[in-house]
């Protein structure tokens, strides 16, 4: 059978115009337009572009949800088996649109999607988890390479074939870990890798670490005697009994607890929920992780303005980076709203 594919492009690749036409509303044309010709050729008869959706980059950016809904409904009308957007190369708005629509179509209709972007296109980082993003050049000069890779990856998905690694297929890592079987045991592979590393030869890790954000350092506190200081910990300090059931590892939530009038975290009143270290010492005296006692002294002395009456806590034991980020953002919002000037974050 020939699979039915709907293709998304912007006003420029549709030949409608450049920046001056960037606010055109989404429209649907039957068959191929522009890069869809290359896509059709790359499908080699196994699939066919049955319709092309065109939308201005600005219009999309201003109406993301409505336009995504509209496009998804059109894709459904055309009874598509798969959806392709772009390539968007290094075009910021177009790339973001490609990623957003692929994710929306995939989510709403459950059909395979693929786009192609320059890895530094903001759309790549934003949407690589929700769709396959083929690595493309930074300009339309890379059309010739990007389109066959998109076609091949979409065909594989539509046929239900196994998808290879990001390197094999040419897509940007989605951050998914998959178990693999190797002939050699881990110890041997590790030694092989070490030898390569010692020789200065290229080697590839089997367990890539996530890339963490960097933020610019905040300015120093000018007047500590007026500052409101808050305590946050990833060491799992909670009121005794762990009322919010924060998991001992892979935490799904964080806690917010009132320490108004609490001068010292006493045994039997506070404990740790953390399952990744020996809890004995923290359970005996939780101040060893969350230094409420000395901060109360410091507050009394007037060295700081005040200790914020709420502290935030979670467990940093195998907790997903995505969850940590979510917790951090929410804590940050609440701390900011409470007028906190600085945070002491303790980790175990």
């Amino acid at each position: 059978m020939t699979y039915r594919v709907v293709h998304y492009i912007n006003q420029f690749f549709a030949g409608i115009g450049g920046e001056e036409k960037a606010d055109i509303k989404p429209e649907v044309r039957e068959g191929v337009v522009g890069p869809g010709m290359a896509l059709n050729a790359a499908f080699k008869g196994e699939a066919e572009v049955v319709a092309t959706v065109i939308c201005g980059d600005n219009y999309f950016a201003d109406n993301i949800d409505d336009t995504s809904d509209f496009i998804a409904s059109k894709v459904k009308e055309f009874n598509a088996d798969g959806f392709v957007a772009g390539p968007g190369f290094n075009a910021g708005r177009y790339g973001t649109a490609c990623g957003a629509i692929c994710c929306a179509v995939g989510e709403k209709l459950g059909i395979p999607t693929v786009t192609a972007l320059y890895p530094e296109n903001p759309g790549a980082e934003m949407y690589k988890k929700g769709t396959y993003v083929i690595v493309a050049a930074d300009s339309a000069r890379g059309m010739g390479k990007a389109v066959p890779a998109m076609a091949s990856l979409l065909l594989k998905q539509m046929k239900g074939e196994a998808i290879g690694t990001p390197d094999e297929e040419g897509y940007i890592e989605k951050g998914v870990r998959i178990n693999m079987f190797y002939e050699k045991v881990g110890a041997e592979r590790a030694i092989d890798m070490l030898i390569k590393k010692l020789k200065g030869e290229p080697f590839k890790t089997e367990y890539k670490m996530p890339v963490f954000d960097r933020v610019d350092p905040r300015p120093a506190i000018k007047d500590m005697s007026k500052a409101k200081i808050a305590l946050v910990t990833s060491g799992g300090i909670v009121p005794f009994g762990n009322p919010d059931h924060i998991a001992a590892s892979s935490a799904q939530n964080f806690g917010e607890y009132d320490i108004t009038g609490v001068m010292d975290l006493k045994e039997g009143e506070y404990q740790t929920a953390h399952g990744g270290y020996d809890q004995t010492y923290a359970n005996q005296d939780a101040d060893r992780v969350l230094p409420v006692d000395v901060l109360r002294d410091i507050e009394k002395e007037g060295r700081i303005g005040s200790l914020h009456h709420l502290f935030y806590t979670t467990v940093g034991n195998g907790t997903a980076v995505a969850n940590s980020k979510k917790f951090g953002v929410e804590m940050g919002k609440r701390l900011k709203a409470a007028g906190v000037d600085a945070v002491i974050l303790t980790s175990t």
């Binding site: 923290a282 005296d285 101040d287 060893r288 230094p291 006692d293 410091i298 002491i344």
Partner: peptide, 25 residues
């Protein structure tokens, strides 16, 4: 240390609090 970043159970309570105060300062 990992299980007691701001304390040291081998010390007396007073010494330990001094240590903690030093770190928070």
């Amino acid at each position: 240390a990992i299980p007691h970043p701001l304390g040291n159970p081998t010390m007396t309570a007073a010494e330990e609090k001094k240590l903690r105060r030093h770190l928070v300062d």
